[in-house]
């Protein structure tokens, strides 16, 4: 007996010219896909391979002939005959400025590749002046929308503030937040459907927040950590990672990453265990897993590390200061 296999509609291919080179990509592919097919490395921050492009950060902008403004490559669909310049003066200028604007207002110290891109584009975030002092905890959660005090021009405003540590599993360090919306999308309808966080406030004063900036422990958060999985800057991190970094002991060169199968239930999600000094310090999940796409639940994400921390505490090796 033969079974018919649904091959779907045939995919058309479109030809796009990227920096003078013609690339053929399937219809529906983005300009970013086409750039990758052409072997180019376009910086991205708010783009997530498991999420709908939000095109908020604008670091991936390219010049498309016939378009008045630059185009976000992560979300614009490649169209037949499109002529794209990824390395034009205009595109490089905007990318450099985006890096400078972010670098001057956000702590990018844990953002992968930030330093490399800054060097590539000759970005100098310090040229807007010395950074303003971080505000007190909670101060950015109660700002009056549509109003702000006149700056004095002596310092460059930042979003820096003390990290929010309100639970044992993960930390929200919004001084590192570039407002890419990925955590909100992962928490909301794109993955978890918990809707524990949203974007609150407006403009430079916008923040990621629970309702009325309530602590996570009092919110709809289910601690799946899928927000941590997609955070591009380390603003969201495992409490274990946060503590090790605070102690100056976080060292990726001493870490191994082992992908295995979560043992908590029968679904069989892949978990990647990041181990340092024989302790699990972080758990991620492969984004190309066709079932979970990098998502886990509280058990797979935090279950193992939590057991470990609890065990440590029982042994009294490292009494916590609570």
């Amino acid at each position: 007996m033969t079974q018919s296999v649904d091959l779907g509609l045939p995919t058309r291919l479109v030809d796009v010219t990227i920096d003078g080179e013609t690339v053929r990509v399937p219809e529906g592919a983005t300009v970013l896909d086409a750039c990758e097919a052409a072997g180019l490395d376009i910086p991205t921050l708010c783009y997530g391979d498991t999420l709908t492009p939000k095109n908020a950060c604008r670091v991936c902008v390219v010049e498309v002939e016939g378009s008045r403004t630059l185009v976000p490559s992560c979300s614009r669909q490649a169209a037949e005959g499109m002529v794209v310049h990824t390395d034009s003066e205009r595109a490089r200028h905007s990318r450099k400025l985006v890096l400078e604007l972010l670098g001057s207002s956000v702590d990018l110290s844990t953002t992968p590749r930030a330093d490399e891109w800054m060097a590539d584009y000759g970005a100098d975030p310090d040229r807007f002046g010395p950074r303003a002092e971080p505000v007190q905890a909670g101060a950015r959660d109660v700002l009056h929308t549509g109003h702000h005090g006149e700056p004095d021009g002596a310092t460059a405003a930042t979003v820096e503030q003390p990290p929010k540590v309100d639970n044992d599993l993960y930390v929200r360090d919004y001084g590192k937040c570039i407002l890419c919306y990925k955590c909100v999308d992962a928490c909301g309808e794109q993955w978890q459907n918990s809707f524990a966080i949203g974007v609150a406030g407006r403009g430079f004063d916008a923040t990621i927040s629970t309702e009325f900036a309530a602590p996570l422990t009092d919110s709809a958060c289910v601690y799946c950590g899928n927000c941590v999985e997609v955070c591009p800057t380390g603003a969201l991190s495992f409490k274990t990672e946060f503590d090790l970094r605070e102690a100056g002991e976080w060292d990726e060169s001493r870490q191994t990453e082992t992908t295995t199968i979560c043992a908590f239930c029968g679904v069989g999600c892949n978990v990647s265990l990041h181990v340092q000094d024989n302790e699990i310090v972080k758990v991620t999940s492969p984004h190309d897993n066709p079932v979970t796409h990098g998502n886990l639940c509280i058990k797979g994400r935090f279950g193992l590390t939590h057991v470990q921390v609890a065990r440590k505490e029982r042994r009294g090796r490292e009494p916590r200061e609570d």
Binding site: S105, A156, G203
Partner: peptide, 26 residues
């Protein structure tokens, strides 16, 4: 100041650019 207040905050060039513009004008 108007644009800094009224920027929705979605994209970086506008969200931070309007702040830097105001600071330089000050």
């Amino acid at each position: 100041a108007f644009f800094r207040d009224e920027s929705c905050g979605q994209c970086v060039p506008c969200r931070v650019g309007t702040v830097r513009q105001e600071e330089a004008l000050v």
